[in-house]
Each structure stands twice: as C-alpha cells, then as structure tokens.
Write a protein that binds this DNA or RNA. Structure first.
Lengths: 336, 336
DNA sequence: GTCCATTTCCAAAACGTTTTGGCTTGATCC
DNA sequence: GGATCAAGCCAAAACGTTTTGGAAATGGAC
C-alpha cells in the first residue's frame, strides 16, 4: 500500500531519515524517531519486501526441495519438521519455500534454478543419497545449505542426521541378547544414505554376534515395500524370529504380512521414525527415533549459521538414536 | 552471478534488447534473438528474482499459513497436497512458502504481515473455522486467496472443499440400512467448519432414520482425541454398534479403544481422509475421501485464477465424498 | 531524390528500499 | 571570534529488472 516516500512526505522528512528512524539508527533524534514510528504503526507501513531484497542482495528465502514420488515424501511427521524450521527461520526474517521437483526434472535442475536466479539465500536438502549431485553442485557454487542425512561427499558439509548405524546395531544386538538367533533386516533403497547406514548397522551386529547376514530383503520405503519384503523373508525355509525394519512405514507393512501368515504373530519387529500411528497398530509398534526435540528448529539454526558463514565442520549434528519400546519387539520369545 | 548489464556488454547490445530478446518480443530480429539466447544459455543467466519482482510489482509468492499445534497439522497427506500445489504454481512462476504461526501470534497477524509487506500475491488458508477472521481480513484487503474448507462468511470466497455433510449423512444411512440402530459420532472441534458440517450430516441421518442423536462425543482431531471419545461412548449404558468418526486419525484412536474393551471388536467404524495407514490397521479401516485426484493442483489452479481476477463465485469447488470400503465398517452385524 | 512505413535497436525512467557521503546548525573550546 | 565537533538531517546512488517512447537505418513507392 503505502511506501517510504509517502510516509516521508506526510511527516515532512526525507526518505533517508524515515528509513533510518525505523531501523533504529543513532543519527536520528529520539523525538523524530518516535514520531516516525508512530506514524508508521498508524498507517501500518511495512517495507516492500522485493525492494529490500533487491537492495540488500538477499532473497530472505530458503528453499527445500521435495522429491515428487507421489504419496510418499519422507515420514508423515516431516511436515512438522518443516513447520518448526520455517517458524525459527521466520524469527530471522527468512521464509521457507517448498519446491517439489516436477516430473521430468531433476532435483539438481531445481537447485540450479533457485541458485542462479538468486531466489534463495540457502537450501535445505532432504533424502540425501550416498553420492548426491545436489550437494556437489551447491558446494561448487558456494551456496549455504544443510542436508537432512549425511552423504559420502569428499568435502565436509553441514548436516543433521541420526546415528542410524549405532541405532540399528544396538537394536539388533538387543534382539540377540533376548535370545534371537535368526534376525532379519528389511532394508530401504541402498542408494539413500540413511537406508545404507542402517543396513550396515544391522550387518555389523550380525557379525559381532556370529550370526548370518542372509536374512535381508530390500524394498521401497513404504508400507507396500515393507509388506512385500516381509513376505519374501517369511518364505525363507528357516524363518527369522525377529525383524529390524529400516522405517516405521515399512514395519507397518511388515506387521500386516505377519498377521496374514500363520505363526507370524510370534515374530518380533522394530521400526524407526516413531510415527504417531505406531502407537495404534496391532501390536503397538516398537521403534526408534532421533534424540532431540524440535529438530526443525535445529535445521533452521544450522541454516542461519551456514548463511552467516560458519565453517561446515562446525555445522554437523549427529544425534543418537533412542528406543521407543512398545510391544512388537517382544512377542513370544524364540524357542527354536 | 551475471546480470543483464554484463550480458549486454559482452554481446555489444543494450540492456533493453537483451531483455526483450529473452522475453521473445517481436521487435528483436530473429538472428539477434538467437544470439542472445545462446549467450544466456551458455553463461547460465537467469534474471534476478528480486529485481523482477520489484519492477513487476508481483511477489511471485503464495503463502500457506500452518497452525502450530505441535504434532498435528492437518492429515499426514497434507504435505502431498501442498507439494502438488507448489508444483503446479511453479509452472506459473510462483513459489509456495509455508508460514507456521508462532506461539503467541495469531494467524491473522501472519496474514497481515505477508499482505502489508507485499510479500505474496495470494494466500492459501487451511483449517477454516466457521467464522474465520483471516477470511474477513483478506476480503477487506482485496487480496486473492483460496480456502481449504468453507466458512460461514457473508461474502462468497474461493474455496475447495469436500461435501462432508452428504458424506457423513450417507455413511450413517448406510449403517442404518445394515441394521444398526445405535449409531454414534465422534466429532471434531465444532468451531472448525469441516467438523461441524460432518456432525450435521450424521445428525441429519439420525433424524431421517428416526434414531437418537445422543451418542455423540467431541474430541481433539488426533488419535488421542478419538481414543478418549470412544472410551466415553463405550461407557454409555447402551453402547453404539457403529461409530462414524470425523477423521481417520480419530478413528485409529477409536480402534485402539475398541480393542481394549471387551466386545469392542464387534463394533463397526468408519473414518474420513483415507490415510495410507488406514489400510494397515487391524481391522483395516473403512473410510471416506474427497473425490478427485491431485487436489493440490486444483488448489493451485484456483489460486492462479483468483490472482487473474476471476470472480469468487466461479472459484468454488465442492467435491463429492466417496467411500473406501475395507473391513472396519462391517464387523459382526448388530443383534440387539 | 523525397517521403513514408517498417524494422531493429536503445536511453532513460521506474519499481521502493538501503546506504554512502555529505551538509547544516548550534554548541564548545581556546 | 574563529576553529572544532557532534547531532541531526538529507540528496543521490545503487540494487537489476521491465517498459516507455523514441531514434536510426532500411526498403519501397512515387
């Protein structure tokens, strides 16, 4: 509506003075400062965002790219995370834009568009792959970014991740300690870092316990993927007595498979993500979760510090994994 | 990186010509146009977003405000919807920013901030209440917007909604036709339009069938809310034999209550939203859903048409509700 | 050769802010 | 009384685009 020029004219002051008064510069007398502020509040003046952005050479925007597999963008609580992130970014005057990748375009193209048009000050990357071309691109361009999940990039970069290796190792060892000797893993697609590292954690536990690593089935990171993978495992001549699932969604699909197969209810299972729904499945799903609350806020904080120029090495958070014990991890103990 | 001036200089042309060549104006000769385009593609030139926005007086942004109840922002597939919306908006050069409402601030304040700073060209409102101050504000300001869900506003405004009344009426009548005579409703908070209208649909069916409307319990629109409401209903001296739940999340909570109570497994239940998880509950949850695919795209389309100035009356979509029959709606038929 | 129309290009203004580098004014100091 | 200084204000430039209103060159008609 109103702009600085009109406000200045109505006050009989220059644009400069009004601008500086509102920004609290010391070279404006307290009395004029107050006068300006009152007038601004009265007319509901707010600086034009585009103009400020142009002048300050900052987009005041952070983008997060969303993979566009229909139906499954990360875990359902992902939006909560984004929301928390956006909320914290807003306190620094930044807004979060969501940028789904249209079919036929790569996530890299998306990044390029945002970066080259100077549309964003930083980017948030999710679903990192072990070798992630987005990371390489942004590193080359020198654009601040934070990833949700690590990568195998040669150069260090800011990330926030859970220690999936330790988590899945511990979960598998727990099953071993409970007497299980045939412990299976339902793995996610191995080009994703998180899926790979969880699988490695399970494998390490198997080796450590002297157990076989043959009971591993890979599937899509969805209920359907978990369901199919579980069916595959259950076809094995010597069935597993416990299953460690890469995600809760996969675990929920696996639970369905267990219900459909005779004797399936005696098989223990554990997932990862702590989906709200997990408490309401039958049996209630035992699971794991990244420790720490309000992770969105942590992402925002990392982003802001990356924008401020802090070195990448200091912007890496590896959170421990904690167990959420419900019932599915201790069904009838194995007697074989 | 590079800007129009540099590009123009390197080509020995004026800024004007380069700009118009890239925009395909007819007063640039085909040969120079090609020359310019090649150079632009080569250097990866993209116009500075802020500058264009300032000059064109458009923010190229649409905001969606997110209520900040921790843990529950609409149904889990909400992000899919937003993603679809953002994707379609992007084809028109608009980006979608998510704007969670910080504690201590109202959704109205958020709207005001975005609108007065000319940060957005339009807004998307979710979780509409029957009387919604955001709607009133935006109408007064003349800012384009679309709501997810109707309101009781005096003036018409663009919306996209499911016909909850008809859906819940039909679901309740189906139970009646199946022989149920004690049909309960688990309702959401009644100041939300969707919750209110679903409750009304159930009530209408009760009247139509000559049944009592006493079996109604209200709760928070979460698993927990549904769980508690179900427990309340089951304490009634003459239990319901069927329950119509305002949302799937509430229905999933209610299912848990049914499992905990003796004889609960004979009670039929139906939800609304068609959450992916519903197919994996025990029993698989029968539910309802708004007809139409890619609703996000519909939202985007409505937004674009609202920005283009189409009258509100033509931007109202009321989608029918369709049933998704799984198992929970036909447990052992009532014999009382 | 003159005139007109068409093609092709461009200088300058505008969008609304922030920031630089002053300019006045009045007080203080010697 | 002149030099010095601080306080308070401001004109103008800059950010990078789009758009307006021509200007120069070309070609054709007479």
């Amino acid at each position: 509506m109103s702009n600085l020029k009109q406000l200045a004219q109505s006050l009989g002051l220059s644009i400069t003075t009004v601008s500086r008064a509102l920004d609290g510069y010391p070279d404006v007398s307290p009395v004029t400062r107050e006068r300006v502020r009152e007038a601004a509040a009265l007319t509901g003046y707010r600086p034009n965002a585009s103009a400020r952005r142009l002048r300050k050479q900052r987009a005041e925007l952070v983008a997060v790219t969303l993979p566009s597999d229909p139906g499954h963008i990360g875990p359902p609580h992902f939006l909560d995370m984004l929301s928390g992130c956006a909320e914290h970014l807003a306190t620094a005057g930044l807004n979060l834009v969501i940028a789904p990748v249209p079919r036929g375009e790569s996530e890299l193209d998306m990044c390029r568009r945002f970066v080259d048009g100077q549309r964003v000050d930083a980017m948030l990357l999710v679903r990192t792959k072990r070798r992630d071309e987005r990371v390489e691109f942004l590193q080359a361009r020198g654009i601040p970014f934070v990833t949700n999940g690590r990568t195998e990039s040669a150069l260090p970069h800011p990330y926030l991740d859970g220690d999936g290796f330790a988590g899945f190792q511990a979960a598998s060892l727990r099953f071993h300690a409970d007497g299980h000797r045939r412990i299976a893993h339902i793995a996610g697609p191995q080009d994703y870092y998180f899926a790979h590292v969880r699988c490695m954690g399970w494998q390490a536990a198997m080796e450590e316990s002297g157990l076989s690593s043959e009971l591993c089935a890979e599937g899509a990171p969805t209920e359907q993927g978990g369901y199919l993978a579980a069916l595959e495992l259950l076809r094995h001549p010597r069935r597993p007595t416990a299953i460690v699932c890469a995600t809760d969604e996969m675990a929920i699909g696996a639970l369905r498979a267990l219900r459909e197969i005779e004797g399936g209810e005696t098989i223990s299972i554990v997932g990862h993500d702590d989906l709200p729904t997990g408490a309401y499945t039958s049996p209630p799903l035992s699971t794991m979760r990244m420790a720490g609350e309000n992770l969105g806020r942590s992402f925002a904080s990392l982003l802001l510090r990356a924008i401020a120029g802090e070195p990448s090495e200091e912007l890496q958070e590896l959170h421990p994994i904690e167990f959420v014990d419900r019932e599915s991890h201790r069904r009838s103990p194995p007697n074989a």
